[in-house]
Write a protein that binds this DNA or RNA. Structure first.
Lengths: 101, 101
DNA sequence: TAAACATATGCGATATTTTGCATATGTTAT
DNA sequence: ATAACATATGCAAAATATCGCATATGTTTA
């Protein structure tokens, strides 16, 4: 299905914040799931902000979560949306330098 | 050249506002230049806002302008950035419904 | 059961973005 | 030169997003 312009805005907004874009970039590039505490460590951001940003990414349809005991893992949601596939390809091109720290 | 994460943020922000996304969608889909007053008419937005949004899109590197007499025409900037090319492909997929009015 | 750990969320403070208005700039027509 | 038209811009107000803190929820370990 083609996205509406409103859908598209939600996705572009989700990707317009640096911590969120770093999370997505990381997940696309490592190509596996990762738990919240690892994201906090890699990006060096407070727990509550990482948590809020993950929620926004999940609501936008970019991520999914799986709860495993104490931990919550996040991973890139599978999609057949051409729109999202193009966005992912774009993100995978972003330069690697200085994403953590 | 690969974009930095900061470059990417500028682009995603530029595309995160509905009037701006509509302008880009329009220009990609008509595949020609268009003058400011036409954009104002099609999108039914005040002149000063259209003008400001065009400026943001131009500064982000998505549009270029050409002044012709009284009028200023805007058009999609040619690029060889793979990142921007993927974004354009994504945008061209967005559903046509209700972009004006 | 209590403590420790991992994550989420409500709310006010702060920062950023967008809007609306007034006005400026530049061009063409009379 | 003046008027009419097309577009741009500065600034304050309004709207929105983000952050920081406190605290809540849920899970495991002692």
């Amino acid at each position: 299905m083609k996205p509406t312009i409103q859908n598209s805005i939600v996705l572009f907004k989700a990707l317009s914040e640096i911590t969120r874009l770093k999370i997505i970039w990381l997940l696309i590039n490592i190509d596996s799931k990762i738990c919240v505490s690892e994201i906090i460590e890699v990006l060096n951001q407070p727990q509550y902000n990482v948590s809020k940003h993950l929620r926004i990414l999940r609501k936008a349809g970019l991520l999914e979560e799986s709860k495993e005991g104490k931990w919550v893992y996040y991973y890139i949601k599978e999609t057949d949306s051409e729109f999202i596939l193009h966005l992912k390809k774009a993100i995978s091109i972003i330069s690697e330098k200085r994403h953590g720290c």
